[in-house]
Design a protein around this nucleic acid. Sequence first.
RNA 1: GGGGGGAUUCCCGAGCGGUCAAAGGGGUCAGACUGUAAAUCUGAUGGCUACGCCUUCACAGGUUCGAAUCCUGUUCCCCCCA
Length: 429
Amino acid sequence: MKFDIFADLSWRGLIHQSTDDANLPTWLDQPRTVYIGFDPTADSLHVGSLMQLMLLRRFQNAGHRPIALVGGATGMIGDPSGKSAERNLLTVDTLRANVVGLESQMRRFLDFEAGENGALLVNNFDWMRKFSYLDFLRDVGKNFPVNVMLAKDSVKGRLERSDAGLSYTEFSYMLLQAYDFAYLNEMHGCELQIGGSDQWGNITAGIDLARRMRRVQLYGITSPLLTDSEGKKIGKTEGGTKVWLSSERTSPYLFYQYWINMPDDDAGTCLRFLTELPREEIEALDQARRDEPQRRESQRRLAEEITRLVHGTEGLAAAQGATQVFFGGEISGLADHELIEIFPDVPSTTIPKTDLGGEGLGILDALASAGLAKSKGEARRSVQQGGIYVNNRRVTDPEKRLTAADLASETVIVLRSGKKRYALLRCLG
RNA sequence: GGGGGGAUUCCCGAGCGGUCAAAGGGGUCAGACUGUAAAUCUGAUGGCUACGCCUUCACAGGUUCGAAUCCUGUUCCCCCCA
């Protein structure tokens, strides 16, 4: 195989630890089968999973066969790694629905039809459900020395805390994940498991188990956690809401904006971890970021690459189109459908058309009913402080009344509070 | 079981009979600056039919012209002793 994936991952900084630094590069000269597990805690993946998805994609592009494992069974238990407290268990129905949601998103990243190295999607519920408790204890549990289990960071950390316990259920989690690896090795010849750095214990548990059960040598690689320059996990907006991959939960526009707003210090890491741009280009961007940070070339490329991958060319185009309007000048002379396409995730409120007749609708009432202000008092303050815009034109008079003259299109008035918060007012009837 | 302390507006935390919609900080929102950044600075931050009115200081009563502040009971929290 011509492409040295190990070297590529190394310079990108994607390798935190591996079970065999010396031999893995040559071992990967042959096509291998590699797996990463995903937790079905929601019906969509979020930005936090991007790095893992990209890792699988990178391996596939390098000629290896990726397996995405959805943890329908393990999700029922809950991984204690990195969790400070016992997890709430998800119901079977929720899990099933979540698994379906994740599958469709995986297809954006992996090619399932590629023949030899076509991606595989598996759900560990399919094989775990058949196990009886006794069988599991005899076949799998027997291979786990408790003293080794106790030494794992995930377990040790929890036992040392006086305020959070660890149930037998969660304690058993690593057996399940370990068995997954052994099972995938048996059924699909999978030999390499990748995970975040917090997965090291679970991965090595799988390697040990496979050695005992099947006398084979498997490998593991962990990636660093994707954190920002302050050490917080990447994937949440300033407001603390997660950035999801599904357009229902996070619109392409907001998704695109999330990357556009990435701080300089984190842009380089994200480019390396989350895009497939070649080394020369990323290094050129590093340089550009130092020389002309105000151009934000890195953020633009980052947003472009990731948005295109997650939402497709159309999604990217929509996001960029919306960006132009959002950060452009006055809004007028547009058609209804254009506005509504541009502002897909902007909340819209419908008011009767008659409100605009006569004296018109008070701006304060409009803001409050559109949800841009919690109360009319708050709306008044915003106006007085110069933070309110109608069709992107500042309004300073709290007594202003909206009339038909303020329509940006046939039926829509665009309200804005501050720099970025928009709301549409649709006047129908 | 005995003793003590506490519950204040989004959060922390002052206030201990009127001058209290309640200090200060955090957060949040807005403005300026800027790179749709960071930092910084400024203003705002219970509601309303808005120079006035209404509802807030755990809950329910009471004392008083007047209570977040005093009294009684209830609930919850914390600490100390057993």
